[in-house]
Structure formats: C-alpha cells, structure tokens
Design a protein around this nucleic acid. Structure first.
Lengths: 168, 168
DNA sequence: TACCTATGGTTGAGCCCTCAACTATTTCTG
DNA sequence: CAGAAATAGTTGAGGGCTCAACCATAGGTA
C-alpha cells in the first residue's frame, strides 16, 4: 500500500500551471535585471534592504536574516558587490568577529538606476494581468504558504541543532 | 517627471509576501529532492517528461521545449544524467544532426524513488495550506501570468531574430 | 584562569545555469 | 547544383549557489 497522497488531476494542472508561471516570472525578472542593470535579482534585494536600513549599514548576520540568505551566500555576494564598489565592508569595534556591510553612493546609484525597470517589469507581468481581487487572493495564498514554511525552516534548524548536539 | 508606475504599499506587501513564499517553496522542494533523491528539481522534471513520452524517448529539442529549458541547459543536464545512468543518448537516422534522449530503467527507477517524497512535499507545503477556493484562484492567477509571459517569450525570440537579422 | 562551546563570518570545491561561440547537417533559393 | 541561411546540438567560460570545513572571537563554566 502506497501511503503517498498523489495529486488529483485538477491539483496537478494547478501545480504545473503555477510552477510554469513562477519559473517564467522568475526568469523574466532575472534576465531583465541582468540585462538592464547588470546584477542578479539576489543582489538587487540586498541593495534594497541595505538602502532601507538606518545609515544604510547592517551587520552581515542581520542582512542575511533580512534577505533570508545563508551566511555563506551573503558573504560571497557581498564580496562581489564590494568588488563592484556597491558596498563596503567595515569591521565592528564592539565585536571583533563581526563586520558591517555599508552601502556606498555607487551602490545607491546602481539601485536607483535599476529600480524603475525592475518595478515596471513586476507591474507588467504580475499586477497588470491580475484583477484587484486576484491580487488580494494572491496575498492571502502567499501568506498561507509563508505561514507553513517559515516555521518549517525554524523547525529544520532546530532539528539540525538536535542532530549536531547528539552527534547523531 | 518619473514615468515609473511604482507599487502602492498594498501591492508592495503582496509582492514581498509572494516573493518570499515562492522562494521558500522553491528552496524547500529543491532541498528535499536533493537530500532525498540526489537530484535537482530540474532533473526531476526532465525525468517526468521523459517518462510520459511514448517509448520514453524524445528528441533533445522536443525535450527542451517540454521542459521550457534552453538547449544548452538541457544538453548539460542530459550529459550529467547520462553519466548517472538515468538516460541514454541515441543518434537519429533521419536527421543526422539530431539526437534522442532515452530514459533508462535506472532513470525510471530513480524517478519512482523520488516521486513520493516530492509529491508529499508539494502537498504539504502547498495544497494542504490552501482552501479549495484558493487552489482554484491560484490556478487562475497562474494562467493569467502564463498568458502574459508565454507570448512575451515568443516576442523576445522574435526581437532577437530581428536583431540578428539586421546586424543591429 | 583555563577550558569548552557557541557565534560571526569567510573560504573552496563542486554543481547548475547562462551566454556566446562553434560544428555539423539540412533546407532554402537563385 | 552551389551557396546562403536555418536548425540541432555541444562546448567552455564565467557567475551564483550550496555544503562542509574552517578561523577567530565571545561567552559561559569549572
């Protein structure tokens, strides 16, 4: 007996449509940003978060949290962005392990340059094709998924801790 | 005057929720599949499409189309999957440029092994958290996005052709 | 104080993807 | 038929991501 709860035909159709739609949207936005602003979407998000932080500085770990990024990924990304002159790393006096990521003027300019095209792309390919009702529905659906997955992440981390602790 | 149609606060909230939800979902499914079946999601999709093809064979270009993949990506992927023993390339008699991708027994077995966990993950993190109404809504929303972006892809291709043609 | 562990962050390897260039074959056109 | 253009597919470089290993510092605890 297979305990697997397979998808019904209707579910399968929805899942495939959703999957394709999301992949197309991702690919579209990614390539728009790469082509017109020379940055991947992940870097755009980092710039956004930094630009909204007080003083446009953030501890690496805070930045990782805010962008839901692993520390490793962020470290690689900031290294490259620093090479681009968009960000500057600064050491922390009160905790010598820590470091800050400081948005530079060039970084802010790059963001300002990139934003209109990106926002226009989001509007065109998402909000323009949905009714106000659908936008509301999408918000609720997204919240539901987040609600499920966010705790799941925490739980996975906890399990990981457990695993490490017991040397299992 | 900025011609940019910026997002309203409400739109911005929906966009960020959506963005985060989709990223979490992607990451969750990707890591589940990688951990439990040792394959990225893209390879899973290739296996699915191949398994559903008559004779479990498909021309590379058909496979690329069906998986909405670039030929390059598919070529790299199939190369690796062939190394894994999941797929076998076969040359085409009627068109000597062409080649077939043939799903092997091992490939089918890998898919059969991977499917239950993957489907369960999809169900848990998506269908279980949505009401039947929301599932329907998500289907319509996805169709709307596809409807917008699918022609846009064709259009981009056409523009590309144009560009090449005029040596622009 | 001396350890022991937890935390902040970086690094390198390996994998997947994109992009552009390339080969080989086929089809179209004069 | 000869040459041009389109098609099928591969390849290599380069970039971003993940994973695991790794420093260095901080914060307990004996």
């Amino acid at each position: 007996m297979s305990g697997t709860r397979w998808l019904t035909d209707a579910e399968q159709r929805v899942w495939r449509d959703f999957s394709v739609a999301v992949n197309m949207l991702r690919a579209h936005l990614e390539s728009q940003l790469q082509r017109d602003a020379g940055m991947p979407h992940a870097y755009y998000e980092i710039l956004v978060v930094l630009s909204e932080a007080p003083g446009r500085v953030l501890r690496m770990s805070e930045l990782a949290l805010a962008t839901r990024s692993s520390r490793s990924r962020l470290s690689h990304a900031v290294a490259r962005m620093e090479a681009n002159g968009w960000v500057r790393r600064e050491s922390c006096d009160t905790d010598k392990r820590g470091s800050f990521a400081q948005l530079t003027a060039a970084g802010l300019a790059a963001l300002a340059e990139a934003a209109p095209g990106h926002v226009e792309a989001v509007r065109e390919s998402l909000f323009d094709v949905l009714t106000p009702d659908q936008v509301r529905q999408l918000g609720e659906i997204s919240a539901a998924i987040r609600g499920k997955l966010a705790p799941r992440c925490a739980e996975a981390e906890a399990a990981e801790l457990e695993r490490l602790e017991h040397g299992d």
